[in-house]
Lab assay of single mutants.
Amino acid sequence: DTINITLPDGKTLTLTVTPEFTVKELAEEIARRLGLSPEDIKDTHNGKTLDPSLTLAEYGITPGSTITLEIK
């Protein structure tokens, strides 16, 4: 299953994830792909900052969802 990550420059990154991924694991994968530190990444969905300890499923993030990435 894939989700879309909207980057600060407007580009989109597509990642393969499972509903059990935590937001922290997602940030780590994004950081790895972009050459950043996971601590520099802030993920938001529907205007809410995502708690790193919760899973994508707990936020109702499903395949095809879009998450907005902010760099701290």
Score class of each variant (00 low, 15 high):
T2R: 09
T2C: 08
T2V: 10
T2L: 09
I3D: 00
I3P: 00
N4P: 01
N4D: 07
I5L: 07
I5T: 01
I5S: 01
I5C: 04
L7T: 07
L7V: 04
L7R: 02
L7P: 01
P8N: 11
D9M: 03
G10K: 04
G10W: 02
K11A: 10
T12P: 03
T12V: 12
L13W: 10
T14G: 04
T14D: 03
L15Y: 02
L15K: 00
T16H: 13
T16K: 14
T16V: 12
V17W: 15
V17D: 00
T18C: 05
T18H: 12
P19R: 05
E20P: 03
F21M: 15
T22V: 01
T22P: 01
T22K: 04
T22N: 02
T22C: 01
V23E: 00
V23Y: 05
K24W: 14
K24Y: 09
E25I: 03
E25Y: 04
L26V: 05
L26F: 10
L26K: 00
A27H: 15
A27D: 05
E28T: 07
E28Q: 08
E29M: 08
E29G: 02
E29S: 05
A31N: 03
R32G: 07
R32I: 09
R33A: 12
L34K: 00
L34R: 01
L34S: 05
G35K: 05
L36S: 07
S37K: 13
S37H: 10
S37G: 08
S37T: 11
E39W: 05
I41H: 02
I41K: 01
K42W: 14
K42Y: 14
K42D: 10
H45V: 14
H45I: 15
H45N: 10
H45M: 14
N46H: 06
N46W: 15
G47E: 05
G47W: 07
G47K: 02
G47I: 10
G47L: 14
G47V: 04
K48E: 15
T49D: 13
T49H: 14
L50V: 09
L50T: 04
L50F: 12
L50D: 04
D51I: 04
D51R: 03
P52A: 14
P52L: 13
P52S: 15
P52V: 13
S53W: 05
S53T: 11
L54K: 15
L54C: 10
T55G: 02
L56V: 03
L56Q: 00
A57R: 13
E58C: 06
Y59E: 06
Y59I: 14
G60I: 02
I61Q: 01
T62F: 14
T62E: 09
T62G: 14
T62K: 09
P63C: 04
G64W: 02
G64H: 04
T66R: 03
I67L: 12
I67M: 06
I67F: 04
T68V: 13
L69N: 01
E70L: 10
I71F: 12
I71V: 09
I71G: 05
K72Q: 12
K72P: 11
K72R: 13
